[in-house]
Design a protein around this nucleic acid. Sequence first.
DNA 1: CATCATCTATAGTTTTAAACTATCATATAT
DNA 2: ATATATGATAGTTTAAAACTATAGATGATG
Lengths: 305, 305
Amino acid sequence: MRPTLKQMQYLIAVSETGKFNEAARRMNVSQPSLSTQIADMELELGTTLVERGRHGAILTPMGEDIVRRARLILGAVEELKFVTKNKSDILTDRMRLGVIPSVGPYLLPRATKTLHQKYPDFRMSVVEERTLDIDRRLRDGSLDTIISTAEDHPGSESTPLFKEALWICVPPDSSLAGTHDPVKLQDLKGMPLLSLGHGHHLTLAIHDLAKQSGAYVSSEYEGTSLDAIRQMSAMGAGIAILPSLYAFVEASRDTDIVVRRIDHKKAERQISLIWRDTSPLKKSFEQIAEVLKQSANTLINERDW
Amino acid sequence: MRPTLKQMQYLIAVSETGKFNEAARRMNVSQPSLSTQIADMELELGTTLVERGRHGAILTPMGEDIVRRARLILGAVEELKFVTKNKSDILTDRMRLGVIPSVGPYLLPRATKTLHQKYPDFRMSVVEERTLDIDRRLRDGSLDTIISTAEDHPGSESTPLFKEALWICVPPDSSLAGTHDPVKLQDLKGMPLLSLGHGHHLTLAIHDLAKQSGAYVSSEYEGTSLDAIRQMSAMGAGIAILPSLYAFVEASRDTDIVVRRIDHKKAERQISLIWRDTSPLKKSFEQIAEVLKQSANTLINERDW
DNA sequence: CATCATCTATAGTTTTAAACTATCATATAT
DNA sequence: ATATATGATAGTTTAAAACTATAGATGATG
């Protein structure tokens, strides 16, 4: 693209030295090379920029204007180069993180705070969408990384963050509310389970659980919010199935309900940080994962269940 | 200089198409060429800008940042190119004009007004300095053109603007104040002439006049302003020699003095617009000269002497 | 499950751009 | 007049950037 950055540098050198010869020396090229480039620039712009003479080189008013602009342009290029330097390893970028709704609101407030403390220059935008949507957005590149269950995003790389058990949530007058001990699978037989809408990982897990326990999934309500499920359960609409993070943070302080762990190996899910296997940001993701892991642990250990 | 403007364009094309192949097509180059340039850019910046994969190309957050900056830079280059287009002939630049003090304040107020009307985009900065100084500044390039007497700036090109006669200026009680008719050279014999300081064209002209007429140049005062000379003359300090433009505009309305034309062929000077013979702005100068000529004519014809 | 289409990367070659050296023309300064 | 600045020009060499052809890898398709 004409004029070239190099040509602009040459013109500035001519402007500052007032001589083609000295400008060429400063630019570490021969005088003819520099002359040719300046001439080419003038041809390209269709204007005379430099007045040549025995006295050396004097810029025309237009030439001076071009020099001013060239300086700004070259400054912007320098700045462009600068932002990439010293920033290859450490986490200083702006990153787009996707998260499923059953994790985001409970893990991220604390985790983002820690991230800010540890990496002050790091900025992150968070998108909360159901499993199906963040999978699409991870693949098409509109998200850099996501927090989800790895098995729902095949062909991606991931690192585990924490394991979540599933809990049931019933009103105090329910037949299952008698104790806080873990509930056996067979206790759920024939009971209505409340579920989120289509496209959520949790919905699949709940259907799976129903199949194994002999329960059925109520079609009465399909929401996107765990709070809605919990409140429906409190009103006696069925058994809410909640992941432990939510159970710890929210459900445990609601006196209208009783929560119990499900006593089954498969009633738990592994939450991971996931990215495209082609992404060059693996190091950054691992740094983020470290912080997320710690935040999750802290959240879980704060409660001594 | 790396990264190149071309490389930036390529990166933007990749960012907008999401595919190396399509980006290359849009840029009218082959895909490998574009790939190589992007790779070179990444090497230069030391960061991965594009994530390659089966899906095509996805920019990293850093890549997106670079694209934003590249867009601004390319925009500035486009603007640079734009300011030179359509402006090769017509007068739209900013120009630096030098003028001698015995002409500037009397000619330019009117002339600049006309210039602005005729060429609205034209901007001019005016420097008023003595002949010696504007000559130096014309030569070293800090002025583009000057209004002066051509013979004081050898080796330059010029176009005549107007001819100025020299006038004398004496107090009403002077022996020379009896009439408004032109004064003969020999009438000045033995009289003290008031002069500007060293380095002014007028000073040389006055010394020349003294030599030819048998007058002498008073050493009482050496100023830079014609007004000062006039006022000293009004106080009886000697005969002020004034160029006609000043005589018309200022001295003719001062009732404390009488002005008379000098009746001698050599008692006049040719004021010209002058520029370096190497300057590429000849056309512009001629446009300016046309306006200056008209302004001077108007000024002179307004008075019906 | 093989085939095809679609990505980008790599290798080797050709073309174009930009550099070099040497020399010229011109004007200023000594 | 001679030496020493200036930038321009000619011809050559080097380096950058383009091309063609092909490989490798993955996802979609019959």
